[in-house]
Design a protein around this nucleic acid. Sequence first.
DNA 1: GTAGAAAAGTGAAACGTTTCATTTAACTGC
DNA 2: GCAGTTAAATGAAACGTTTCACTTTTCTAC
Lengths: 342, 342
Amino acid sequence: MTTIRDVAKHAGVSVTAASYALNNTGTIGEATRKRVLEAAEELNYHPNAFARNLKKRKTHTIGVFISRFGGSFYEEILEGIHSLILDTDYELLVCPESRSARRILLHRQVDGAIVFDSKISDEQVLKLASRHFPIVVMDRDLQSDFILPLLLDNPQGVREAFWHLHQQGFRKLSFVAGAMDSFDNAERMATFLAEAERHNLHVPVYQGNFTEISGYEIARAILQSDDLPEAVFCANDQMAIGFLRAMREHGLQAPNHIAVIGFDDIPLARYMQPSISTIGTPRFEWGTTAVRQLIDFIENETPFQPQRIPTRFLPRESSILNVHSQTSTGETILGPASSDPS
Amino acid sequence: MTTIRDVAKHAGVSVTAASYALNNTGTIGEATRKRVLEAAEELNYHPNAFARNLKKRKTHTIGVFISRFGGSFYEEILEGIHSLILDTDYELLVCPESRSARRILLHRQVDGAIVFDSKISDEQVLKLASRHFPIVVMDRDLQSDFILPLLLDNPQGVREAFWHLHQQGFRKLSFVAGAMDSFDNAERMATFLAEAERHNLHVPVYQGNFTEISGYEIARAILQSDDLPEAVFCANDQMAIGFLRAMREHGLQAPNHIAVIGFDDIPLARYMQPSISTIGTPRFEWGTTAVRQLIDFIENETPFQPQRIPTRFLPRESSILNVHSQTSTGETILGPASSDPS
DNA sequence: GTAGAAAAGTGAAACGTTTCATTTAACTGC
DNA sequence: GCAGTTAAATGAAACGTTTCACTTTTCTAC
């Protein structure tokens, strides 16, 4: 590995001069600057990032911490994050759950973090965040000047969905819940149950974990009984897909036998047969917003602006009665889009 | 930030002793070791990764370089990579295309790399690879002791698909190509055209770029003419989806009007209506294989074992004539699975 | 020509570790 | 109680940068 020392020697100049020339800092003559750059080129020199970061105490890197790559969910968020990063001179580092996540976070190998991994504890995040290490959290609500919670507006979408069901006359409702430690699941469930409560409806809750298979198994259990719900709300699309699969295997169809609604609007949702009613989230923009605010904070100490990411109910075939001739991607709007019609 | 110096002082011991204690190296008494660890705990000490890496010249990190997150394609590969990394004490760093990719690669911020990003040039890879920096490439074929090409066995799947079409009597075929700089596209196209050649068929090629929209637009162009092909082979699923969308808009159906085959078996393919015939690849295992060999090389200098990742044709509704009553996920096998029946 | 200011260039310290070469302390067996 | 060994602990150098404080050179205006 060739070092800056080699470059300096080759250009017949001091190490300092070489450093200034390479970084365009300090004060250096045009002639020598050229000479140094040529030497660097010739020797195929690339600065050692560790030495540099060690000295500068800045990495110019944003770290994104997610739990896993699968599930079609993070994909668009990551794309949004990536697209905005491309416009900056920051680097991006994505780290799935593991020892490494902890390490990288703790070691401050990044200048700021975006956290979307429930395996990282609240205490961890709170302890880490500081003026010099701002953190955006997308899956929890924490109070701190150095932490920006960017959360989905779950209540909005859930209320629209509830209203959609209620307006069509569905009264026997069930809720299929996702992972218990999930903020989003909690909020979706709380909202749905609260709405039901307001209409004096009792809603049984089935505990799943956001996976397709958990939705499938819950459905199997439910379908055993002869007292079927009229509609189920699943806390995410994966479970809705599993639920529908079980229904199909039992010879039942949505929405005729049971109406089904999911959450997230993953790509599959609109292509399934029947297409799945769900709640859409602007994930791409979610990602860009996170990066924008984070970099703004790092560069200019612009205070964080907490905001909710809007959600929107998308009625599709799986929950619309007597409308079987739609296109599979149709977005027919039945009710008003406002949140709380009562 | 608390440094090892603070820890040493707090434990009343030399810096060296602290380092030995923390790393479980050197020779250190059990009592002092305990004392140091307690001090570290108490001061909430975390070693500075840059200083450490600078000294050790090892990062214990594997870098994965992909072009982007979207497209459902990398997802499973990344999951495979991640799952295996979890079993090791290596860290994982995923880097989408950008300046950063180049930088991180050049700066050797990782101990080994997995490259799946055509924006990184062959020369770059060749120049970088060395005994101390092995590289797995998944999207090109390069010869070097320090480079492991792990490529799809495109010919296998394409031949099966061609045979499937031919056996059903399709003779007017078209090929929708992906990005020109793609190894996989080149190989898929070459194989398909060679097979056609052997049967004295001329196959028009339409140049796309792997995106859904390019498939859509090519289809629109083709559908203008009144001389439609009987079947089209798209170099990936995204383009097949676009192609089918255009067909639907023209009131045409696959396979009745035009049979359509894709490549990759992305999750959507089986759920589309009609389900899309495609060529499946074990992406998860592809990822694990890459990591396994890479770490094996790094740790034990185990020579790379080049191998082809098998592919398999999956006949579905979009290319099977007169079989309309299948389940949308059915995997009916029509022909023998062997590659070259002639 | 010269004083003073500006520009160009340099030496050395510092960043926080690890590790080599040494020293010091603690055991052995006799 | 001592020579010889082994175990425990240490000081200092090194990793490759950046940057502060300083020196040397070049320019400017009179």
